[in-house]
């Protein structure tokens, strides 16, 4: 298959293009030069040591963790209810309501950010990390719904029926049968929403008051050339964190599919 070989070469080249920028992070994070450029001058860990003592950055990190955890919990709660509703029940207006909830997926983030700023300022609520959480929940809920819908779709309804027939109440059925079966999906949703929130910039940029999140902090550093090596080393740590979170989420998603006895479609559950 000659055609197949050419396509393979093309696809591998494309992967290199996709990964090239990201691979620069670890290279320059350990490069002993204040300028991020070739030639490489030597190995150092001093940029990481600088990060260790950068107190403003530490505050930004805590802010991001707070926002990320709050966002992950809230959007997963919303997502669980909505995914359950859309996969298990049929009712009038379901399609329209679901379409509306999923709308933030296709809206430019700047529109979401602008709308939230306007309304919060009008209501006299000061911009803060809490405001960032409100915005992040809005954009993370659709992802939670997508992940959890596939978890609920794979659920065998007869298991719940059996539990009800055997005398369990609907409440205990949910906690003893349904929840354990979709638990991996819930963990995956928590991890994905956390990762999205941790990386999100525009909404945080508009809504955060005086407390920066990590991306907003990074943005403020980009203006200074001297700070770039520090940003690169911080970036490689973030890259590592994102990768770990992601692989964990993927692991749980696959377990969710396995538990339900299906293979899944291999698309990450987002389509």
């Amino acid at each position: 298959m000659r055609q197949g070989r050419w396509l393979k070469v093309y696809s591998l080249t494309y992967l290199v293009f996709i990964y090239a920028p990201v691979l620069l992070l670890p290279i320059f994070a350990f490069n002993d030069s204040a300028i991020v450029a070739f030639p490489l001058t030597g190995f150092t860990t001093k940029w990481f040591e600088e990060l260790w003592s950068a107190t403003v950055m530490h505050e930004a990190l805590w802010n991001s963790l707070y926002v990320g955890i709050a966002t992950a919990v809230l959007s997963t709660v919303f997502g669980t209810c909505a995914a359950r509703a859309s996969t298990r029940f049929d009712f009038r207006g379901k399609k329209a309501a679901m379409g509306f909830i999923m709308l933030p997926l296709v809206l430019p983030e700047i529109i979401v950010a602008v709308a939230l700023v306007v309304v919060l300022v009008q209501m006299g609520i000061s911009l803060s990390l809490f405001a960032v959480v409100l915005g992040h929940v809005l954009i993370c809920t659709p992802f939670s719904i997508a992940i959890l819908s596939s978890a609920f779709n794979n659920l065998d309804l007869s298991l719940e029926e059996a539990s009800l027939d055997l005398g369990e109440t609907p409440f205990s059925t949910f906690f003893r049968v349904t929840l354990p079966l979709v638990a991996p999906g819930i963990v995956s949703s928590l991890l994905i929403s956390f990762t999205i929130s941790l990386d999100e910039f525009i909404i945080a940029f508009f809504l955060t008051g005086t407390d920066p999140t990590l991306p907003v902090y990074i943005w403020s550093q980009l203006r200074f050339t001297a700070k770039l090596p520090g940003v690169v080393s911080l970036g490689s740590l973030l890259l590592l964190a994102s990768l770990i979170l992601l692989l964990a989420a993927e692991y749980f998603r696959r377990r969710a599919n396995k538990k339900a006895g299906t293979e899944g479609d291999g698309t990450g559950g987002f389509l």
């Binding site: 209810c81 009712f91 379901k94 909830i101 933030p104």
Partner: peptide
């Protein structure tokens, strides 16, 4: 139908308050 409504309402009301209302504003 009601069960579906009840389950969907948290996410729906949230989107209404945090997205539709701000956009209207």
């Amino acid at each position: 139908e009601a069960s579906g409504f009840k389950l969907l309402s948290p996410a729906f009301l949230y989107a209404l308050v945090m997205l539709a209302a701000p956009l209207a504003m």
